[in-house]
Nucleic acid binder design. Structure first.
Length: 652
RNA sequence: GGGCCCGUGGCGCAGACUGGAUAGCGCGUCGGCCUUCUAAGUCGAUGGUCGAGGGUUCAAAUCCCUCCGGGCCCGCCA
């Protein structure tokens, strides 16, 4: 067979051929139709072919019987010249089903994978810069499982967009100008020479929780005294129950590290006004005063060092670490935004605070319809009365900074923050930067709950990304040791690391982001079907076959026409779909599609594995074709896993 | 009170954006398959009024309306 030039998207070529045939037949038929009505779908069962066109809409438009139209189209198409299309048939109440020519299609697909290797599934460059901002966990506690979901989704999304041809930059926004960091830093400053124990971000998390706990207790006690004097018994009871909650948090924390907790608790207790001190620290930091900078940066860096360690373990990397202080406060960016907004006519000063009238912006620019806003959009406070800025205000400046570097910005942020993200867009309109708002995507995802209660950084109650990976890796180690005792200790450790971490990534990436997740160990520690280990195992099996075939691969001419079992045909078609899946996942921002695809392909491979011998195939050309098929599976699984940031082991 | 998200077998999910041909998959439970390329696999059985009720359509899990249940948001926090 003559070698054709490499086909990057085999299934798309087949689809286009089918589409062309349908359009040709419809024209010959003389019916009226719009080209975008000619859509082909992958049918629900293999009996219905590889692609299917339903005639109902066009038949109705032209007053024809759908079944008769399908019959007629099928018979016309049968007389046309075809390449990848083997045959066409009319079926059901009005479907035209297309069957691929497997001999040709297997050759086209497998040759493409063979030549393109890790680039199979990559689409051509689009010359469009995209910033994906994700994770951006506040530097006040370790990354917990909710943050892990953000990180995994964000990283997978970035990998997919990059594969789809976008010029992607990953940014981590460090919110070091928030009240929380100031609070954690205030607590940290009270420790004197107490050394950092354990992983640095975990330590910061403990300091933050202790500080917020001590401050909450103090302010509740004060409030209760006041309410008692005023005789408001009802409210006193409410506050007392809140106080109880915090007191139990305090004993939980104290049990973990008495020395640190006590130091913070005593300092807060003896302070006349801890809230005032925190606010003062923040104010000095926004003004870039040396002592405040040294303290807050120290705490932030401790947290970040921990984040980097955690993220690296999960193969998550960033191109840019963006300090909020530098990009929005110290350069005057946020102040400028406030001034402009006040001058825009949509802002006003009320009791010493600057406020943006979001409702008015939405009305003036006709955005209610556009963004599906039903109720009234609450106003946005831009500045506190002490002159410091608020998060969303700074985010406006940061967003403008990002758009200096990219045409499109995708922020992976939890659904909770839908309102501020909307307000951010409205602010851009108010600044006459509606064009930026149009290219700003809030990619939202739902929270991860613990069974029972919500995670709370302020209370130090959370399951960390680190713990989850540790546990999964430990569990993987037990499995590997049980199943492959012949491997060396070092190799078993290596394999369990990538299996365990992979399992965690998969568990978080495979669920549609808009579904809330309740965290259970069972979910992450699933090593059976629909898990990373399941896919990695299929990859290892494929690798094993190829390893045993040794140098034999590629020596003889492959007889692709011999791949005639349903298992082989199914595999070929699935392999050809990777570029389409990448395209769809990128265009619709659906990272979970990759997980679904990889799982599906693994299942198909396992069926093939159990039913079709490869190494024992007698006929040389067929053996070669099967080896190429196995190699195709190995390559595609590896590529799909890469898109999810999961390693593909050759043994496990 | 207003707004947003979700509701598919005992449990966890896919399918919904772009309506189509018997609603897929995993876990669980029960029963099979290792002298044949790693059984983290595979085969079979079990199990579903697609939250409820209306509507649109040749066709509805999918679109529209109402209601019910769960989560989230409505702050000089982020």
């Amino acid at each position: 067979m003559a070698k054709e030039s490499v086909v990057e998207r085999p299934f798309a070529v087949f689809r286009e051929e089918c589409r062309g045939l349908v359009i040709g037949a419809l024209n010959e038929e003389g019916v009226e139709f719009a080209e975008d009505e000619v859509r082909l779908a992958v049918p629900s069962a293999p009996d219905y072919g590889n692609l299917s066109f339903s005639t109902f809409v066009i038949a109705k438009k032209n007053g024809k019987n759908p079944k008769e139209l399908a019959d007629s189209l099928a018979s016309r198409i049968s007389s046309y010249g075809r390449n990848l299309v083997e045959r066409v048939e009319s079926a059901g109440a009005g479907y035209v089903n297309f069957f691929v020519n497997y001999a040709k299609f297997a050759e086209v697909t497998l040759e493409a994978i063979y030549i393109l290797r890790e680039n199979f599934g990559r689409l051509s460059d689009r010359d469009e810069k995209v910033i994906v901002e994700h994770t951006s966990v506040n530097p006040i506690h370790p990354i917990h499982v909710g943050g892990a979901r953000n990180a995994v989704i964000g990283d997978t999304l970035a990998r997919i967009l990059s594969a789809a041809g976008y010029d992607v930059r990953r940014h981590f926004y460090i919110d070091d100008v928030g009240l929380q960091v100031a609070q954690a830093s205030y607590g940290y400053s009270k420790l004197g020479d107490v050394p950092v124990v354990g992983k640095s971000d975990h330590f910061v998390g403990f300091v933050y929780a202790s500080t917020s706990c001590a401050m909450s207790i103090k302010s509740l006690q004060k409030e209760i005294e006041r309410l008692k004097v005023e005789g408001k018994d009802e409210e006193v009871r409410e506050r007392l129950s809140e106080l109880d909650d915090w007191v139990s948090v305090a004993s939980e924390l104290r049990a973990k590290n008495e020395k640190v907790f006590d130091a913070i608790y005593q300092a807060v207790s003896s302070s006349a006004d801890p809230e005032g001190e925190v606010a003062e620290l923040l104010k000095r930091y926004e003004r870039k005063e040396e002592g405040a900078v040294r303290l807050i940066r120290k705490v932030s860096e401790l947290a970040l060092a921990g984040f980097k360690e955690t993220l690296q373990r999960a193969d998550i990397e960033f191109d840019s670490w963006d300090w909020e202080s530098e990009l929005t406060s110290w350069n005057g960016g946020a102040e400028t935004v406030v001034e402009w907004l006040l001058r825009s006519g949509f802002g006003r000063v009320e009791e010493g605070t600057a406020i943006l009238d979001c409702e008015e912006v939405a009305k003036r620019y006709g955005l209610k319809e556009k963004y599906g806003i039903k109720g009234e959009v609450p106003p946005l406070t831009l500045k506190r009365s002490d002159g410091t800025t608020l998060y969303t205000t700074r985010d406006i400046a940061y967003t403008m900074w990002k758009f200096d570097r990219a045409e499109k910005v995708i922020n992976v942020i939890s659904l909770e923050q839908k309102l501020p993200q909307l307000q951010l867009k409205l602010a851009l309109y108010a600044l006459n930067l509606g064009g930026l708002a149009e290219n700003l995507v809030h990619f939202s995802y739902e929270l991860v709950h613990l069974p029972g209660k919500k995670m709370s950084g302020r209370r130090g109650r959370y399951v960390t990304f680190d713990e989850v990976m540790d546990e999964a890796v430990e569990r993987a180690y037990e499995e590997v040791s049980k199943r492959s005792p012949h491997l060396s200790e070092e190799e078993r450790r290596k394999i369990s690391e990538l299996v365990g971490v992979g399992a965690v990534r998969y568990a978080l990436a495979a669920v549609a982001p808009n579904k809330p997740i309740t965290f259970t160990w069972e979910r992450v520690l699933n090593f059976e079907q629909n898990s990373a280990p399941f896919i990695q195992y299929a990859h290892a099996r494929a690798s094993n076959i190829l390893a045993k075939a040794g140098q034999g691969v590629g020596q003889s001419e492959a007889e692709y026409a011999g791949l005639s079992t349903k298992y082989e045909r199914e595999l070929v078609v699935k392999l050809s779909m990777l570029p389409e899946i990448v395209n769809e996942a990128a265009e619709n921002l659906r990272p979970e599609l990759i997980a679904e695809y990889a799982n599906d392909l693994s299942s198909a491979f396992n069926l093939f594995y159990d039913n079709v011998p490869v190494l024992k195939t007698e006929e040389v050309g067929l053996r070669e074709a099967r080896l190429r098929l196995v190699e195709g599976v190995k390559t595609v699984l590896s590529n799909a896993l890469y898109l999810m940031g999961i390693r593909a082991p050759t043994r496990m």
